[in-house]
Design a protein around this nucleic acid. Structure first.
Length: 489
DNA sequence: TGAAATGTTGGGGCG
DNA sequence: ACGCCCCAACATTTC
């Protein structure tokens, strides 16, 4: 379908909303009756944090998928690379567009850029409208009784979930009016987002980026693992979680769609109410993290609690490398780090364990862990990543108390009692019996030999003794507490 | 969404 | 039958 020559186009800027369904900006554009030009900008603005390598892999596939879905409606996805604000202005010039729409982001760099851009475009006489496509509740719509932002999850979520009123999601457009002329587009392959030399993404094949893959995963989850979510979600050896995080980060699915699908499943009797609520609480954590990042933008890089600024984090390049490589000698930690490297994802229970280990056993700054996750996670998300790390470090809002130090082998025994997760990711330990697989250093030389293990050679000895590390962390955090209270009159 | 140390209780072995 | 000890199991406190 082509447009009336006299109608000027409307630009739809796709960002972290790579879908056609429940896309308020796209729906608005289609309903405006104008020809629609959809575009994506690979941002090279030095002010913005560059996307990590794993995320770029996902982006590549997701853009391909979105592009195909648009093509099926006779539309295109225009691809551009450059400083996002400048690219948008250039596209307005080239196309003679009279309107621009997008769905909002909540990260400090993005909000600043969008605010400026919106003002600049309005000055040029354009109609610019932004929408909520990424959250159940936008950060400024949820406030405590005294009017401030929440800093504790439980009361936040109690208030926020009561405000969710969605009863339906927007359908994908049935048709999209095209402009007479399409602006030039880069070729996706020329962006070089897929890794080569070497291609380390072979283990990513279980993922299906794009809207169809996101929908399929949601449906499969609600029909299966969701029903045993309370127990299943904590067992990394099983597929007990939704694994929707990368789909949600890239907006191939909206949290509203997830919310509605879960409600629907429980209304139809396919999903227990308590399982539903436990699952939706995880969507709640995502909401809470975005709420925090919006109201306290410094948490992306700085301690939420400034009292921790004087903490004596260690510089331990060797420890950091061992952690990254999955060679700490603690099977649960190493399995998690290897799962991350191989698949671009890590089970949530294990994320807490590896984070606790880096911060509290090795006393390495949470920022180092945050940066590694940013580069290697397919679901890397500024709000979730920073808030998650600060939660573990105890520096965040509603954070884990300083004395909560995970014991990697007792966590393993509790949540992976059969060692399924360890055997999958650390095959060199597979021959150990269940009761030793989380603590190979306690195996006798006979047991090690029977399992084909040469501790210190085929698998490392623990890089630090657990009990020693625990006491060292308690002492370090305790010192900080003393220091801190001394400052208070 | 913790772990470890310390305290308490009660059953059973034993003189 | 009784008191004593041991210790597992559970509860509470502390970090």
């Amino acid at each position: 379908m082509t447009a009336n020559l006299t109608t000027k186009p409307i630009l739809v800027w796709f960002r972290q909303d790579l879908r056609l369904r429940d896309h308020p900006a796209l729906t608005h554009a289609v309903q405006s009756g104008r020809p629609v030009i959809a575009f994506y900008v690979f941002d090279t603005d030095p002010q913005q944090r560059p996307m990590g390598a794993a995320s770029q892999w996902w982006l590549n596939r997701s853009l391909g998928s979105l592009s195909n879905d648009l093509a099926a409606l006779g539309a295109s996805l225009v691809l551009r690379k450059g400083q996002a604000g400048e690219v948008v202005k250039a596209l307005v010039q080239e196309t003679g567009a009279e309107a621009v729409v997008w769905n909002r982001l909540y990260e400090p760099g993005a909000t600043a850029r969008d605010t400026q851009l919106k003002a600049a475009l309005k000055d040029l006489g354009l109609e610019v409208t932004s929408f909520n496509g990424a959250l159940l509740n936008e950060p400024w719509t949820v406030a405590t009784g005294s009017g401030g932002p929440y800093k504790v999850f439980t009361p936040y979520w109690r208030a926020a979930r009561a405000k969710v009123t969605a009863t339906s999601a927007l359908p994908a457009p049935a048709q999209i009016l095209s402009p007479d002329n399409w602006p030039a587009s880069d070729r996706l392959n020329d962006w070089g987002l897929h890794p080569t030399k070497p291609d380390w993404s072979k283990g990513f094949d279980d993922w299906q980026p794009g809207e169809a893959g996101a929908q399929a995963r949601l449906d499969d989850f609600l029909a299966g693992p969701a029903n045993a979510y309370a127990e299943g979600r904590d067992q990394p050896g099983k597929l007990g979680t939704s694994r929707l995080s990368p789909h949600l980060h890239f907006g191939e699915l909206s949290p509203r769609q997830v919310w509605l699908a879960a409600q629907m499943a429980s209304h139809q009797g396919d999903l227990d109410d308590s399982a539903r609520d436990k699952f939706l609480a995880e969507i709640g954590w995502r909401e809470f993290n975005h709420h925090l990042l919006f109201h306290f933008p410094h948490i992306a890089t700085q301690n939420f609690k400034p009292g921790f600024d004087g903490f004596g984090w260690l510089t331990d390049e060797t420890g950091l490398k061992a952690w990254q490589a999955g060679l700490t000698g603690y099977p649960m930690v190493d399995a998690g780090m290897r799962e991350l490297w191989a698949t671009g994802w890590m089970h949530n229970r294990v994320r807490m364990i590896v984070a606790s280990f880096l911060i509290k056993h090795l006393l390495i700054h949470w920022r180092e862990g945050e940066a590694w996750f940013w580069d290697t996670l397919l679901d890397a998300d500024l709000a979730n990543n920073a808030a998650g790390w600060q939660w573990t470090a105890g520096t965040g809002a509603d954070a884990s108390p300083y004395f909560r130090i995970f014991n990697p082998f007792s966590q393993g025994e509790k949540f992976d009692p059969k060692g399924a997760y360890i055997r999958r990711w650390i095959p060199e330990l597979a021959g150990l019996p269940d009761k030793l697989i989380h603590r190979p250093w306690e195996a006798s030389s006979l047991e090690l030999r029977a399992a084909g293990i040469n501790l210190g050679a085929t698998y490392p000895k623990p890089i630090i003794d657990h009990s020693l590390a625990r006491n060292r962390a308690l002492e370090a955090y305790g010192r900080l507490k003393t220091l801190h209270t001394d400052e208070v009159p």
